[in-house]
Nucleic acid binder design. Sequence first.
DNA 1: CTGTTAGCGCCTTCAT
DNA 2: ATGAAGGCGCTAACAG
Lengths: 344, 344
Amino acid sequence: MAKPRMVDVANRANVALATVSYALSGRRPVAAATRRRIMRAVEELGYAPNSLARGLASKRSNIVTLLLRNPERGIGFTEMEFVTGATQAAEALGYQLLLSLNDMSSLRQAEALAGSRLVDGAVIMEVHLDDERVSILEEAGIPFSMIGRPRDSAGRNCADIDFDRTAHDAVQHLYELGHQSIAFLNHSPSTLSSAYGPTVRAEQGFRAAAAEFGVRYKERLCGDGPDSGLLEFRDLLREAPDLTAVAVMNDRAAAGVLRAITEIGAGVPEDYSIIAVASSARVTEMFQPRLTTLEPPAAELGGLAVRLLIESLQAPPDDPREPVQALLPCRLVLGASLGPARVA
Amino acid sequence: MAKPRMVDVANRANVALATVSYALSGRRPVAAATRRRIMRAVEELGYAPNSLARGLASKRSNIVTLLLRNPERGIGFTEMEFVTGATQAAEALGYQLLLSLNDMSSLRQAEALAGSRLVDGAVIMEVHLDDERVSILEEAGIPFSMIGRPRDSAGRNCADIDFDRTAHDAVQHLYELGHQSIAFLNHSPSTLSSAYGPTVRAEQGFRAAAAEFGVRYKERLCGDGPDSGLLEFRDLLREAPDLTAVAVMNDRAAAGVLRAITEIGAGVPEDYSIIAVASSARVTEMFQPRLTTLEPPAAELGGLAVRLLIESLQAPPDDPREPVQALLPCRLVLGASLGPARVA
DNA sequence: CTGTTAGCGCCTTCAT
DNA sequence: ATGAAGGCGCTAACAG
């Protein structure tokens, strides 16, 4: 038996083709009895609408795409949660999620995306402060939202970590434990020079928080990976021997910090306190000791970005939805890496 | 200026619409000069084919879907690499990759997938030995391939880790270092009872390898997470005090193993050797010491599964491609967790 | 509340 | 090697 079409359902339910369409889409009232007959026919035939035909006729595919950055840089746990959170949210709203590695770096690429009409909108992640994709997508007329946000986020939909608050929380925790000299280990120099949002905003946040609490403060950019972490932390100790605590936004480097500490015969948290920021607890729980962590609500952020996009897609053109800039705080996951500052 | 259609390109190039179609799809020879004119028109107009219309007419969407399992179970690094590898491979072949959380547990769901005609095929991951999805997809007539493989993989496309070889390699490494009493820490009991492929196959592989090398052998199923790892390893030590090495397939539990060892004042690799199997080195490099690891070629597996699917999709119906069951070995990533067996 | 019908943009058979 | 024209299955006017 061939794949049933809408007309088959209509015949079986003794109604016009259009009535089936309206019953299914709900875009026009249909008498309860009629609708029931239709639904029964749908079930009996195992009918499922052809989404290509539907999309062609309605000019809406009910697909959104999540644009990944070049994965060579390596994708982490947090990014993965963005993806699953986004997928879940999309499906909950009746949309499908297309993954794409398209870096959208040229207008032509965006035009191709727009021209294909395959997707109704896009979500971009790993946003840089001057992300070229923002203007390109706008120019191409592709609705989009962001996980992260550019320098100027006004008038755009985005969902991002509240880095100011995260930094504040991190410093406050350390401060309340008596730490007066702290350090912040950031992402790599290249992420800063390319103005990667988290790198820049966390740096600002930590500077502000350090000033607010009046603690001595050092910061370092740090390549990903244990080796860089080890070197940077050694260097930090040399420059600031009074250091007693460090906030690390770079989980791969955190391993190196621990090694550096072990190396000098010191311990965590007796001699040094470590707090992981914007890392997944699934990762930091594996350290010895497990790291107290300010974990980003990654799945929520992914879901939120999708929801903002879809809501704006569904708003009537004559009454567009006001774009939202949402900032979500990291949540504290307790480990065993925080202790009172040692006395000199 | 409205979105250009194929007819616009045809007019501008002074050819019939059909010629443009053939020039673009290559499904019929087109004179070089004609084709050049067409391509120029395409560029000038910024034309991109409407994939919905194309799919409707051709009955092929050029989209494949990757079916994720319920992400509550938590998705790891390796899974993420499946996803990026699959995406990359799909795009390289001119396909798009749709992510779906659809668990395909009922025929109705599969029918809906098939009926929507949105995707030409599916890739399933986290395959269980008696995975219901296999028969359901087959019954629904949806072409698919697998990352992993069911009990009977004959006649099906799948790409999986070669667990026998991985276990053999792991045991051999330990054996050559003089270890005569080893243990294997597997995934959780629930994964075994649900016949999750890797759990079952690794268990078989390690038993065989232990027998082959004639070493004393213990095995444990182990919940994910450091706490379970700690408890299981303690228990293992109690039962087999002569133990000198352990292979761990569960990276979250590995942290607990290290803790258990630290706890008794022992060290790695002086007292105990640890080898991680089927884990991402990105994770195991973070341990102290970094774990020597047999890392699965996750991106390759994801890419391979997609390629097998698409190739079977593109084969002419009268000459179908023979299904392939590919087994890829894990590659060794050196850490510092392996040493010669201590002498009693 | 229901029915009729003209497209949506492209592919593809059939003719030339 | 190129053209002409009939769908693909559904949506959304427009009519009643």
